[in-house]
Design a protein around this nucleic acid. Structure first.
Lengths: 346, 346
DNA sequence: CCGCGATGAAACATCGATTGTTCACCGTGT
DNA sequence: ACACGGTGAACAATCGATGTTTCATCGCGG
């Protein structure tokens, strides 16, 4: 490995001078000719500053962390892309952690392990938290230590900057569309606790939309499930079993991860989409084009949320004051034909 | 931040003694009572060894890198899960890099940038390379520097340990199945250069299987495309346009990323799967259950490849001699009904 | 009663880079 | 000729932790 000392020796100066020349240190000057000698030597030797030494001294790792539940959930892959882009843009490294993978170990909760690793050991300068598995109190204690943190797709208790989208409006748009088609028995499959407060906001939007049209939201029509295709399948079966007397004519899937299992369950029950039941997913993803049948969705900018969160975090690390952002992009309907007018009641 | 010095002061010893006590350094002993005082102090203060200081001294970062092209490709998410599991198992951190994201910048090739960052700056102890974008010569130069490296799903020139699966057998299994159904005009959509030598081996298996049954493999029946749904769509159209006189009755998709676009293209051409054309994907993924129609596949253990690669790398870092591994698991056919006997020629 | 080998812990050097301080030297003004 | 400001570069401390060496102390045998 080529060290700064090697460059300095080659250029006939001391390491400190070499360091200043290579970084263009503004607080102290280096002679033009000397600087050139140093730069040439560094190039010839293929020198690159060692990250450990530098970080130890500067107390900056140049690395940010990203906590996601699981990269099987493609929504989080989009968020990840955004954060990664922001990191690259500011010449930082990104340490992605799939929190679910830490769930196995007997000792300690997953977020505890992750927290120790990334924060207490000083591996990252800050974190984007895209996982609702990090309890509010852990978040709070990090915030209390002034550890740079940005939440994405979740607001927490408001003490920590966050990036969210118009979840409530998105859910209301869903209701508008379905009611517009004539649906009155509208059901939903919501994300369980791991969905965090984004799920809560979507549900709130759903309630508001339904109430605006004078519709009830009886608990039997609204189930929660874990984000996976199995979760979607089980939820659909549960939904139809609980409401056998008056089954829903339209179902809102509050996570696209439900889509595959939900479609399977609906097929298994001998129902057709959209003839027998309308289906609407959220948030949009290119993948919904190719399900059987293609799924209409409501789109919100997940990737941009990641990007904004990354940028916000980097500004926060840079010492700036930042405030929470709700992306102003209005949610929009993506029609792929999975909704239709309800069958008239027999 | 709590430093070792703070613990030492609290326990009334020097940092070095505290360090030894906390790590249980076998080369030098610490009195039982002193050790207990130190451990108590560390617990009370919530001390955790700082990763930068430790790594600088020990010349070990406890971090391994993983290069993947893009996490949109779910095959690589599986590999990632495996590598991450191996990392956790050995208490290491994982630095995932999506190489595609570095493609944008004008300056320097993507692998050059990644290489500088991860290797030359000393951010990782070793890398799992799951991306064919890293040129053989870069690999070679890393290998020459004895930098710990393991290739996954690719063999390179044999100088570097690798983990692969039975790609050739998988492709032969495809041919066996299709020929067994009576197909003779078998086409394939292969991965382009980014597929690396795994693509080459699959193609070799295809050729061997076809030849064994006395079948030709005219170039018009075998196209390459970039891994994406668009790539699949374009490839299918190209395939049918080139072979209008005698269109294929069965198509092998050498990457599941082709599936969505390919199904779309086939629908758009007014063809049905499997009545008009049989379709077979690779490698298997839970996702193939839910396409329209569900896709039969050949399964190989992608996640295990990642896990093995991670373990191999960690052993390599530990100083062990390791050799390349081909996972012995035989590829197996997963029937979801997307293949059928070909239509008799009119 | 002296010395010797264990034992336990302090002192010191080191990893690679950055940064505050010191210092030699130059030309210039008086 | 002397003091002085300014320049360019060396010196040394530091970041946090980990070896490596050194050094007291104690028990015990000779």
């Amino acid at each position: 490995m080529v060290r700064l000392k090697d460059v300095a020796t080659a250029a006939g100066v001391t390491p400190s001078t070499a360091s200043r020349a290579l970084r263009g240190d503004p607080t102290q000057r280096v002679g033009v000719e000397t600087r050139q000698r140093i730069i040439d030597a560094a190039r010839d030797l293929g020198y690159r500053a060692n990250y450990l030494g530098r970080s130890l001294r500067t107390q900056r790792t140049g690395t940010i962390g990203l906590l996601v539940p699981n990269l099987d959930l493609f929504t989080f892959v989009e968020v990840t892309h955004g954060v990664q882009a922001a990191a690259i843009e500011s010449d930082h490294s990104l340490l992605i952690v799939e929190v679910d993978q830490f769930r196995r170990e007997g000792a300690g909760s997953p977020h505890e392990l992750v927290y120790q690793r990334l924060v207490e050991e000083g591996r990252v300068d800050g974190m984007v938290v895209g996982s609702a598995t990090l309890d509010d109190d852990v978040i709070g204690s990090l915030a209390a230590r002034a550890f740079p943190l940005v939440l994405v797709n979740r607001r927490g208790d408001g003490q920590v900057p966050s990036v969210t989208c118009r979840d409530e409006d998105a859910a209301m748009l869903v209701v508008e569309h379905l009611v517009g088609l004539g649906h009155r028995r509208i059901a939903s499959v919501n994300v369980d606790v791991r969905g965090g407060d984004a799920g809560t906001r979507r549900r709130a939007g759903l309630w508001r939309g339904l109430e605006r049209h004078g519709l009830e939201h009886p608990p039997d029509y609204h189930v929660s499930s874990s984000m996976s295709d199995e979760g979607g399948r089980d939820a659909i079966h549960a939904l139809f079993e609980r409401t056998a007397a008056a089954p829903p004519t339209a179902i809102f899937l509050a996570s696209l991860t439900f889509a595959l299992g939900a479609l399977e369950a609906i097929r298994d029950r001998g129902l057709r989409v959209p003839e027998d039941v309308s289906l609407l997913g959220f948030p949009d993803h290119s993948f919904a084009r190719h399900t059987n049948p293609p799924l209409s969705t409501v789109a919100v900018p997940m990737r941009r949320m990641g990007e904004e969160a990354g940028r916000l975090l980097l500004r926060l690390i840079g010492g700036a004051d930042v405030t929470s952002v709700q992306l102003p992009d209005p949610p929009h309907f993506v029609d792929r034909g999975s909704t239709a007018r309800p069958q008239p009641d027999p």
